[in-house]
Amino acid sequence: MRNEINDYQNVTKNTIGLLMISISISLLLILLVGWLTVGGHMSAYIIFNGIALITFISFFMMLLVSLYTYFRICYNKSVSVLILKWTKHSLKWIYPFLKMVGKLIKRDKNDVRKAFTLLNNKLTMSECKSYHGKDILLVTPHCLQKAHCSIKVTNSIALCQECGMCNVGDLKYLQQTYGVQCDVVTGGTLARKRIKEKKPKLIIAIACERDLVSGLMDVKGIPVYAIINERPEGPCYNTIVQKKEVEDIIKYFLRGEKK
């Protein structure tokens, strides 16, 4: 959760900026194509603009509802279950468009990804559900393990010797202390397999921004809380996660308390 606090201001500005640019581009496209179509083809012009208008209004409503929900949650205001569900569904439609716009304006891809994970986390936390430890699955990529370690914890985290050289031992400790499930995976395919096998009711995923967004887009019907890892030695190599951050969020969902 400390990562979220540190990134909050930048992510908020980037999110709002991208949403406003998305709206502007949508309007310009409607006007441009309408102008190209109108010459001598009034019926086509009317049909096209009718479809475009309905599409734009639907998308614009998703943006407005998402912004409304985002700020309500940020200021600890209550949000109805219906709006929460709408926002969760609309996010997966909005993100690819925001990604495209971010690329056009040369915005750092990770800023857009952080915005997506931040809003997802706030939506997940705002539902304020309480879970049993056995219903929570911690998932992390194998790059959390030191590259020189000879033990394959992807087979089972129980094999970890807890030498203290990496955070895998911390996750093993959290698994034993809180009764959560925990898996170290080699990639998305194995992660999906473990999720299917273990059928968790909540997933706490640790990874880089790119992999987290990919997982959030891929997982259906299960709430996911995303924790961005630290990469002092570069991507996919000897990554780090703060034990306290993971432990705090486990406690949050075990109690189901509001913050």
Rank of each mutant, 00 (worst) to 15 (best):
M1F: 10
R2K: 12
N3W: 11
E4P: 07
Y8M: 07
Q9G: 05
Q9V: 14
T15A: 03
M20A: 08
S22W: 13
S22E: 13
S24W: 09
S24H: 03
G34R: 02
T37A: 07
H41N: 14
H41E: 13
H41Y: 15
A44Q: 05
F48L: 10
A52Y: 12
S58F: 15
F59D: 04
L67F: 15
F71P: 06
R72L: 14
C74M: 14
S80Q: 07
S80N: 10
K85H: 13
T87C: 06
K88D: 06
H89Y: 15
I94C: 08
K99I: 00
G102S: 03
K103S: 13
I105R: 05
K106P: 00
K106V: 07
D111F: 01
V112G: 04
K114C: 02
A115N: 08
T117D: 05
L118S: 06
N121G: 12
L123I: 15
M125T: 14
E127N: 04
K129V: 13
Y131R: 01
H132I: 01
I136C: 05
L138S: 09
L138W: 10
V139A: 08
V139I: 15
V139H: 04
T140H: 10
A147L: 02
C149F: 11
S150V: 15
I151H: 03
I151R: 01
V153E: 01
N155F: 14
S156I: 06
Q161F: 14
G169I: 04
L174T: 06
Q175Y: 00
Q176F: 10
Q176T: 10
T177P: 05
Y178A: 02
G179H: 11
Q181H: 08
V185P: 06
T186R: 02
G188V: 10
A191T: 07
R194N: 07
I195M: 05
K199A: 15
P200E: 08
K201M: 09
A207E: 06
C208M: 02
E209V: 07
D211S: 03
V213F: 07
M217Y: 13
K220Q: 06
K220G: 02
G221E: 03
P223H: 04
V224Q: 05
Y225C: 03
Y225W: 00
E230D: 10
P235M: 03
C236L: 05
E245V: 07
E247S: 08
D248W: 10
I250C: 11
F253M: 12
F253Y: 14
G256T: 08
K259R: 10
